[in-house]
Simulated scan of single mutants.
Amino acid sequence: MNKISGLVITYNEAKHIRACLESLWQVCDEIIVIDSLSSDDTVAIATELGAKVYSQAFLGYGPQKNYGVDHCQHAWVLSLDADERLEADAISDIKALDLTNSPYDTYAFRRKNLFHDKWIRCTSWYPDHVRRLFNREKVRFSHAQCHEKVESTAHTALKSHIRHYSYTNYHDMLHKLNKYSTQYALDNATNQRRVSVWSPSLHGLGAFLKNYLLKGGIGCGFDGFTISLLNALGSYLKYAKLLEIQRYKGVQS
């Protein structure tokens, strides 16, 4: 029988944490929560639901999750963000896996990204494959401060789903876009990645055309156009901020 450790990192996630943990308990034997000093009821709710909660000031997404992996008891870890939850098909697929004899070290799921409580089935938002179930004895998260992922060469994708309550509204999306683009620039400046003055425009235009035309945003009405546009803005800002660091040794958040 599969033994799985659930892992969630949190900061003021009282709105989401209950549904997230309740879905994890459908397939996990323990749940580890790494909390970044929340000021709401996140810790109380997680403790009530039987999770083992550890407090750790935020280290960045990759390092924070790897810190959590070190506290997991079992070889296989199922990591969800607090605003995610397993859908019924994912629960069934996980229960059916023979993880002891698996030829893979990582499994990805299709993520349903919701916006205004509506599943966005176009742009890069679907199918949005995310690696969530992995063998911690073989793989770890990347050390990226943002947009971390499980680094694996022996992975496969399941057809089942994780539900993701990604953004509350456009204001929330813009706020996170600004935050993530800054962190991308800082990560890549550390890696000494060089960009040209054309990089922001070319990447931004490419992201819009990909999302709106190739990924079907054109068929999703106002949300499809706006999400494509904001994805393009996010891509533009990542490279503009990296260029800013290279030219002026600084970036504004």
Results as ranks from 00 to 15, higher is better:
163 R>D: 14
166 S>K: 13
227 I>S: 07
63 P>M: 08
177 L>Y: 04
120 I>K: 01
245 I>V: 15
4 I>M: 11
18 R>D: 14
86 L>K: 02
232 A>I: 05
68 G>S: 09
44 A>Q: 13
111 R>E: 15
62 G>K: 08
57 A>H: 11
175 H>G: 04
7 L>T: 01
247 R>N: 13
242 L>M: 06
152 S>K: 03
23 S>W: 02
178 N>Q: 15
174 L>E: 10
170 Y>P: 02
38 S>W: 04
100 T>C: 08
129 H>M: 11
3 K>Q: 12
191 N>I: 09
144 A>C: 10
40 D>C: 06
156 T>D: 04
23 S>Y: 03
77 V>K: 05
224 G>Q: 04
135 N>G: 02
65 K>A: 07
173 M>W: 10
79 S>T: 11
12 N>L: 08
227 I>T: 10
167 Y>P: 00
26 Q>T: 12
73 Q>V: 13
25 W>D: 05
80 L>W: 07
72 C>G: 03
87 E>C: 13
79 S>G: 02
189 A>D: 12
84 E>M: 15
121 R>M: 14
18 R>V: 00
208 F>P: 00
148 E>C: 10
136 R>E: 00
239 Y>E: 11
243 L>T: 00
106 T>Y: 05
12 N>F: 06
155 H>A: 13
23 S>D: 05
235 S>W: 01
152 S>Q: 05
24 L>Q: 11
199 S>G: 03
219 G>N: 15
190 T>A: 15
144 A>T: 05
21 L>G: 02
200 P>L: 08
72 C>P: 02
212 Y>M: 08
205 L>R: 07
125 W>A: 08
90 A>G: 04
12 N>V: 09
189 A>S: 11
42 T>L: 07
247 R>Y: 09
70 D>T: 07
187 D>C: 05
17 I>K: 07
51 A>R: 03
173 M>R: 15
178 N>G: 11
194 R>H: 12
15 K>S: 11
127 P>W: 04
84 E>V: 06
148 E>K: 01
211 N>H: 13
105 D>Q: 08
181 S>W: 03
51 A>L: 04
179 K>H: 13
210 K>S: 13
205 L>N: 07
9 I>D: 00
28 C>I: 01
49 L>T: 07
175 H>M: 13
167 Y>H: 11
237 L>M: 10
228 S>G: 10
196 S>W: 08
223 D>C: 09
33 V>K: 04
236 Y>W: 10
50 G>V: 06
22 E>M: 13
121 R>K: 15
225 F>Y: 12
230 L>D: 02
22 E>I: 10
107 Y>V: 01
250 G>L: 08
237 L>D: 04
6 G>E: 03
162 I>Q: 06
74 H>C: 01
89 D>M: 05
7 L>F: 07
20 C>N: 10
57 A>S: 15
180 Y>I: 10
14 A>S: 13
33 V>H: 05
34 I>C: 14
238 K>W: 00
125 W>C: 07
71 H>W: 08
82 A>P: 05
45 I>Q: 09
34 I>R: 01
89 D>C: 06
245 I>A: 00
55 S>L: 14
107 Y>W: 09
238 K>R: 14
131 R>L: 09
201 S>Q: 10
195 V>I: 10
19 A>K: 14
71 H>F: 10
20 C>W: 04
118 K>N: 14
129 H>R: 11
145 Q>P: 00
72 C>N: 01
174 L>V: 06
13 E>K: 08
163 R>Q: 12
107 Y>S: 02
